[in-house]
Structure formats: structure tokens, C-alpha cells
Amino acid sequence: MKRVAALLFIAALAVLLLYVVSRMPPMGDPETPTATHVIPRYLEKAEEETHTVNVITGVILNYRGYDTMGEVTVIFCALAAVLAVLGRERRGVIHGFVDRSEVPSSTIVRTMVRFIVPFIILFSVYTILHGETSPGGGFQGGAIIGGSMIIFTTIFGLYESSRRIPLKVRAPLEGAAVMGFFLVGTLGLVGGGNFLTYAWPRVAQDLHPSLVVWLTVLVEVGIGLGGAMVLTSILFAMIREEEEIATVS
């Protein structure tokens, strides 16, 4: 009986969803409201309203700032969940590292990683700071820093990398993305606008437009640093767990 009811419910849901899908406008239809109102508005007004040359950054950080703030919060929550399950290392304790790999990494690989990781981090800084003029931005730059940390940790081990980014540096910066958003958003409130209005319209309308750009860059840097630190912390927690399992068994 229960099964029949479930089946009927699923069938009804499927009919409903298929009906809705069949009434949706076809992909890329130029007559839809999105294509006639939203997209031209963004493309025409984005530069003068958000003062960012890169329209995508303008849309992500300014028009849809709330949405991006939610995404940043989701990343932070992911870190919180991972740490709630795996636990955080104790403050001031640097974990020992034993290379349990069957084949220890060679001198060539070590030298190359040591040579190339600074360049990767330099590139990520470029990506973050050029987010408002060219493709790039905080999320991408943060992911690049996280990737460089993953390379470094797989070659040199947890000991070396957690010595370079200790907990007391990581822990405050993990919330940098959320904090940056709240700071800039509150500045908009203080200036008499809505939350996350960058320009604080009434107080400083005549202010130099580069101020808005700087606020955008601040949010970008926050997202970049926060994302990088979140990735690094998740990596460290997982590697530490693996080491503990290897030690016990």
C-alpha cells in the first residue's frame, strides 16, 4: 500500500515537472524576459553602476552580492563541518611527519616544487587583484593558492607546510571572506544605502569612483584569502586524520 502511494506520488510529481519543463522557453530564446531585460541591462549599465570593467565581477559581487555572500558562507560551513568531524590540531603543536610512501619523492621533484610554488602563489595574487578588470577573482585565486598548498603538502609533508602556515595564521583568516562581505555591506548601511550598496550613495556620491573599485578589491581579497585558508585547513585535517589512522594500525 505504502509502495503504491509512493509510486503514485512520484508519478504525479513527474507529470507536474514534465509539464513545467514543457512550458519553459527554449534554450537561448531571444524573446524571454531574461534576454530582453536582464542581460542588456547588465551589459549596458554594469560599468557605470559598479565601476568594474569586468561585468562578471560586477554581477557576482555587486548585483548579486547577497548570493555570493551565501556561497561564501556555504564554504565556511563546509570547513566547520569537516573540522567538527575530524577535529582541529591543538594550538602550537606541530604534527610530526613520517614519509610512509613506498617511493620517497626524488630530489628533482622536491627542487621543482620548491621553485614553482612561489610562482603559483604570485599568479594567484595576480588573479585575485585583477578580478575586476580581467577574468579571475577571489574564488579562482583562492583555489590556486589551495592547489599550491596541496602540491607542497604532498611532496614535503604536513610538518613542513603547517610550519609555514601555522594555525594562528590560518584560524583568523578562514572567515576572511564572510568578514569582508559583512564589513563592506555594513559600510553601505552606514553611508545611508542598503546592505551591500558599495557606493554609499547619499554620503559620498561625488567621491572618486575608484573607492568603489577598492571596496570590490577588498571583498575579492577577502574571498581569496578565506577560500585559500579553508582549502588548506580541510587538507591539513584530512592528512592528519590519515596519519593518525596509519599510526594506530
Binding site: S105, S106, I108, V109, M112, I116, F119
Partner: peptide, 21 residues
Amino acid sequence: CFLLLSSATCGHAIGRSALRR
């Protein structure tokens, strides 16, 4: 430059690891 460096290192690492294993 970076492509040549990293590609050669990758090839070396994979080959060496496979040989030792």
C-alpha cells in the same frame, strides 16, 4: 618555460614511481 619544467618533472615522477614499484 613553466610548461616545460612542470611537464618534465611530472614525467620523471610518474616514471620513477612506476619503476620503483
